[in-house]
Structures are given as C-alpha cells and as structure tokens.
Design a protein around this nucleic acid. Structure first.
Lengths: 138, 138
DNA sequence: TATGCTATTAATAACCATTATCAATAAGGA
DNA sequence: TCCTTATTGATAATGGTTATTAATAGCATA
C-alpha cells in the first residue's frame, strides 16, 4: 500500500542534477545523452525508471504534451509551456492574470473538474526565421 | 505541393458516420470496434489512415490530449475538453469568457505564440463515485 | 565496521499505439 | 466503359516506453 523507501543512487543523483541544470525540458533520450557523458554505462531504462520515481515523488514534472514524446522539467514553480509546432521544442511561459482560467463547476455530462492546464503553441525563434524565409509574405 | 483528390469510399463514409454519432471521443481502436459491426473486414490501418485524412481536411478533430492514446471528435464547433484522471474518458466543456486566455506576446526565450489550448482534468461521474467509496472522508 | 534486506541497476525483451509497405481493388472523371 | 490513381486489407516495421531478471549497492541496524 505504501511506497518503498527511495534511495539516492549515483545514477539518480546525476540524472536529477543534469535535469536541474538543463532548462530545455529534455525528452528521456536527450537526458540519456547528457547523463551518459558523466555515467557512460547508464541504461536508458534507468533514465525512464528514475524519471518515473522522481515524478511520483514530486521532484520532477512530466510534461505530457499533446501526442508527442514526453518531456521533463525540474523547475517546479507553476508556469505554462509553449511548444514549437515545427521542431517540438518547449519553452516556459510565465503565469499571468490573463492566462488564468476559472474552473467550470462541471462538464456537460457531469464530470467534476478540479484542475486545468494551458498549453500554448507557436514557433521558436529558429523555426520562425526559417518560416519567414520560405514564405512570401508582402 | 497540392494534396491528392479525396475520394469518398464506403469505409471512409462509415467511419465518419460512426464518429459523428458517437460523441464519446473514441480512440482509434474504439472506433475500429464500432465500424467493424458494419464493415467486418475493415482494417485498423484503414481507421488510422482515414482519421488522418479527415483530420488534415478538417472534417475531424484529433484531440491531442496529454500522454495518452489519441482521441477523435467529429464535433467541430469550438469547445474545451476534460479528461478523467482515472479512466481517461473525455467530455466536452463549453467555452466561456472565464475560460478564455489572452495570448502572451512571447515566451521567455522569444517563442512567438499564436494559439493555445485549455485542458481540464477531473473525474467522470463513475470514477468519482468509486473514489468516494474507497476513500474515508469524514 | 560488518551484516542483511531490498531498492536499484544494466541489459534486454516485450509491449503497444501508430505508421509504412505493397499488391489488389475501386472511386470517379473522361 | 476505360484509365488513372487514391484507397484498401494484410502485415511488417517503428519508436517510445515498460517489464523482466540476475547482479549490485544503499543504508539501517547490530
């Protein structure tokens, strides 16, 4: 019923440290590449397992963005995210009064609603520049 | 450069009809089960292929909800969605002024933002009832 | 410091939603 | 009716993620 004791292994520590200093909302395999620089024999399964453990214990946020590979974030203060429509990169968007939503009491068939998430879409500077090149806009 | 002519096949028609009358935001395989009642030899690949074609041509909406199997909707008027945290079922939430977000000009590292989506989370009536049973709340 | 329990690991296989391949078929314009 | 080619069913392949398993290593306790 209760979860097992969480041990701090070298792998877990290195994974968490790298994620904390990355700020790029890496995917599991991007983090894998980074961690391998320091721990060459680490396994991709270990990355996934630890991201899951750290997500469950609240030390990491799993960004479950639409229909694509999951990304992870060690920045725990509340904020929104934008995803680039072209390359999938994710960036932070500060929360403001204008991006705050009032929860409806319930949905059409009586779902009880207790949270929400705003996902912005757009283009990162690089893809926006490319788009301007290839598109003829007066 | 331009997309090929879209033919109206029996399969495509049946898929669209079923999706239009389902209102449950079915996944591809749920729709597959429904369509097979009428076209027993239809292939799951055909379902996916048509959902893709119909999504591209704007006749269907693909609900790219977080981290789970894609769901589809033939209701094209703008509205939000709630997803049940326990069973994954999806329901409609009307758009209101309180659930409308003003787009930020740009993100922290200069992403240009041009759209957003609000996703609500909660519990469907069934799972909410079960939760009340198994939880001892004074 | 040594011991014992068990969470965690590396390696790898399995899983599962989705996409690609391809020969046969059928939509629909000429 | 004929012809072009979009579409189909069957099936293999892909790719992200999870499960399995024997070996290893945290860490609480003696």
């Amino acid at each position: 019923m209760n979860s097992p004791v969480q041990r701090m292994t070298r792998q877990r520590m290195v994974i968490l440290e790298h994620l904390r200093q990355m700020h790029s909302h890496p995917t599991a395999d991007e983090l894998y590449d980074a961690v391998r620089q320091e721990l060459p024999s680490v396994s991709l399964g270990t990355i996934y397992r630890n991201l899951d453990v750290l997500t469950r214990s609240g030390q990491v946020h799993k960004l479950e963005m639409c229909g694509v590979q999951a990304r992870f974030d060690a920045e725990l203060s509340p904020h929104h995210h934008v995803r680039c429509r072209d390359c999938g990169r994710v960036d932070d968007v500060p929360m403001t009064a204008e991006s705050t939503v009032t929860l409806p009491v319930e949905s059409k068939s009586g779902f009880q609603i207790d949270d929400y998430r705003v996902e912005f879409e757009g283009h990162c500077p690089e893809c926006a520049a490319q788009h301007r090149e290839t598109t003829s806009v007066g």
